[in-house]
Design a protein around this nucleic acid. Structure first.
Lengths: 128, 128
DNA sequence: GTGATATTACGAAAGGTTTCGTAATAAAGT
DNA sequence: ACTTTATTACGAAACCTTTCGTAATATCAC
C-alpha cells in the first residue's frame, strides 16, 4: 500500500533532512531549521508536510495541538532508493560505474578514501 | 547563458540515453530505439526534443528535412551533474558517503570491485 | 502539378510540484 | 466570556512535465 516508486522531490528532501538531523518536529521547528534560501513561508512548509503525509513519506502525531511529524523511512533507506533510481536511469543499472563516476567527479580526502577501501575489503570478505 | 541548473528529467534521460549510445539521430530513430515501456507516441518524443532543444540539452541540425538531434553534454558530464546534485541534496555534500552508500546498497562483482580499487590507487597517486 | 506521405509546429489537457493567502479552529491570556 | 495568538485546513495560482491530437508544411511519386 505504501512503497510504490516514491522518490522525494527536492523540496521534500529539504524537509526530510531537517527531520533526519533533528528528529520529530513540529511545522514551526521545521520551518525555522530549513535553509534560509530559498525562502519558504510557514504555510508552504505545512502544506509540504501534509502532502508528504499523504504520500507516506512522513508520519503525523496529532495528539498535541501542534502536530509532530517524523520520517517514515530512514536516511539510509531513502538514500538507497535515490541511488537505485539514478543507477537505473543514468548508469545503465551499474552501481560500479556510478561509484567510479562519483569518485572521478569529486575526489575524496585521504581519510575518506581509506574508509572506502575498508568497505571494499568488507564486501569482498563477505562474498567469499 | 546555458548552464543554469539543468537537471534532465526522467523522460529526458531516456532520450539522452538513446543519443549517447547511438549518436545523432532523427525523431523517428529515437522513437524507435526508446524502450517499449512506457509507450510513447511519435509526437510525444518530438515535443520532448523540442523542449530539450530550448533548454539546451540537445542541439538540432535543421539542414535535412528530418531534423537531426545530438546531445549538448557528454554522458560523463551529465552523470557528474546528476551526482553532484544528489550529493548536495541528500548526502550532505559528501561524495564519499554517497559512494559508500552506493557500495553498501548494490554490491558489485569481483571485477568491478577491482576496477574501483584501481581508480582509488590512481586518485591517491595523483594527490601526492 | 496533384495526391499521398512524412515531418514539424502548435496548442492543450492532465497530472504533479511549489507557493501562499485566507478561513476555520484551537489554545492561551485577560 | 472575549480577545489575541498560533495552528491547521482548504483552495487556488503559477509553473513544470508528459502526453498526444490536429494543423501546417515539406517531400516524394506519379
Amino acid at each position: 500500500m505504501s512503497n510504490k516508486e516514491l522518490k522525494p522531490t527536492d523540496a521534500e528532501l529539504d524537509v526530510l533532512r531537517v527531520l533526519w538531523e533533528h528528529g520529530p518536529a513540529t511545522v514551526r521547528e521545521i520551518h525555522q531549521r530549513l535553509p534560509a534560501t530559498p525562502h519558504r513561508g510557514y504555510t508552504t512548509v505545512l502544506k509540504l508536510l501534509q502532502i508528504m503525509s499523504e504520500k507516506g513519506l512522513v508520519r503525523r502525531d496529532e495528539s498535541q495541538r501542534a502536530h509532530v511529524y517524523s520520517v517514515e523511512a530512514s536516511m539510509e533507506q531513502t538514500q538507497q532508493k535515490l541511488l537505485s533510481h539514478m543507477m537505473d536511469k543514468a548508469f545503465d543499472n551499474s552501481m560500479s560505474s556510478l561509484v567510479m563516476r562519483a569518485l572521478a567527479t569529486r575526489p575524496a580526502s585521504k581519510e575518506e578514501l581509506a574508509e572506502i577501501r575498508k568497505l571494499l575489503d568488507q564486501i569482498e570478505g563477505e562474498s567469499k
